[in-house]
Amino acid sequence: MFRASASLDQSRTRRCLAYSLLWMVFACFFVKSSASAAEAPKEHEVKAAFLVNFAKFVEWPSDAFAEDKSAVVIGIIGDDPFGDSLPRMVKGQTTKQRDIEIRRFDAGEDPQGCQVLFLSRSLGPKTTEVLARVQGRPVLTVGETEDFVRQGGVIGFAIVDQSVRFDIHLKVAQDARLKISSKLLAVARSVIKAP
């Protein structure tokens, strides 16, 4: 009695199965048709794209640049994790009529003349030392270690739910006389206001 009533629904089940198969065929078709599309992004390619965007969504005091038309310089200190992705992304990009340039620094060097400074994970415990070196200067420090913003960095990357996100320390940014666009603040995972 019990099973007999269940079989009344068999035709509907078949229909559902047919629809599900149809959908899967659709999905397969989409995969094929997009096969010529590009490769998946790597974590550091996404971070590189963010770096270029940061340069666009932050305002520096005028004394941060040598001249009116000086380029915005993205410095990388420590091992460069971006390969050639960052140089290729920077090509042709401008922000407020300034070009964007890349400069690399050794871990021991004083990173002079850059407006954005990316502190590579390879710095390890030296991170705080480098942060101390640029403290007070109008430099947007960007890092990717766990406690970067707590250590006095302005923007720290984080992986959340397998996506690249970032935290912003507003107080540190203000101390460095940087103005961060509200658009950037809105996308940040968290914005720290207190010291």
């Binding site: 992004p41 965007n53 290729r88 992304m89 990009q93 690249v164």
Partner: peptide, 19 residues
């Protein structure tokens, strides 16, 4: 072309990409 498309994505789109 891929990398160019990354840098032209919005901040929101970048935040949603999966690693």
């Amino acid at each position: 072309g891929d990398i160019a498309s990354l840098v032209n994505m919005s901040l929101e789109q970048l935040s949603a990409l999966k690693v």
